[in-house]
Every structure is written in C-alpha cells, then in structure tokens.
C-alpha cells in the first residue's frame, strides 16, 4: 500500500512538472520556489514576493490574536443569547497596499505593505 502511494505521488508530480514546463515555468522540487522563479523572471515584485514568503513571528501572533478574539466573541455571544444590538462586535481586516502613507507622508519606499487590524467593540449604556 505504501509503495502504491508513492507511485501515485510520483505520477502526479511528473504530470505537474510536465504541465509547468509546457507553460514556461522553471520547475524544481519545491513548487513555492517555482512560483518565485516565475515572478523573478518577469522582474515583478522580486523582493516583495521573497519577503512575503518569509516567516515572521509578529504576523503569526497577529493572526493568532485575530482568530482567538473572533472565537471568543462569537462563542460568548451565542452562549449568552444576547440581542443582536447588544452583542460585542469584532471587525478584522487586512489591507495590502502599494505604499504606507500617513498624513500625507510616505512611510515606505518602493515596497508594498500589509496592514492587519482588529477592532473589538461593545455597546455601553450611559
């Protein structure tokens, strides 16, 4: 069974390699590198594409906070059966922009930026 599984994998890999070569892609054992090579050949966002694939602790932390906050908010609201208007709100967003401009001043140069955000809101009666 194990050898059949590997044979199936090899067959799929060869087929995928053939497909990539037919479309002018540089192939390698790592298809992420092939993806990068495609963009590198075109000179398109070379550095940006490389950096976007680099792991980054803060990005992972942000995503973790977003997901955790969402789960906590939704679960607590559903559990309490509150009216919709009184439920806490969660707004998560991510912007991918060509430049970071703050109050007219560019705070990035020749590089795209990724800007995640999460907002938690609740209604308070005064």
């Amino acid at each position: 069974m194990r050898s059949e599984g590997f044979a199936l994998f090899d067959s799929l890999k060869k087929g995928f390699d053939t497909l990539l070569r037919a479309n002018g892609w540089h192939t390698s054992s790592h298809y992420g590198q092939a993806f990068l090579w495609r963009f590198t050949k075109r000179g398109f966002w070379r550095e940006e594409m490389k950096s976007m694939f680099q792991s980054h602790l803060q990005i992972l932390l942000t995503f973790t906070i977003i997901i955790f906050s969402f789960l906590v908010s939704v679960s607590s609201s559903l559990a309490q059966g509150e009216e919709k208007e009184d439920r806490p709100t969660v707004n998560a967003s991510m912007e991918i922009l060509s430049q970071y401009v703050f109050r007219g001043v560019a705070l990035s140069a020749d590089s795209a930026v990724i800007q995640p955000s999460i907002a938690l809101g609740c209604r308070a009666s005064l």
Binding site: E47, T62, Q115, P116
Partner: peptide, 22 residues
C-alpha cells in the same frame, strides 16, 4: 479598541530592516 500593524515587505532604509515597524 483597535490594534493595527504595518508590515513592510521590503524595508531597506533603516539599518535594522525591521519589516514589522509599527
């Protein structure tokens, strides 16, 4: 309450090259 961040995909201006810079 809002948390917002900026990840620069190609920051080369400052010596630390910190991509998560705000």
């Amino acid at each position: 309450m809002n948390i917002w961040g900026n990840f620069d995909t190609g920051e080369e201006l400052f010596s630390g090259h910190e991509r998560w810079n705000e």
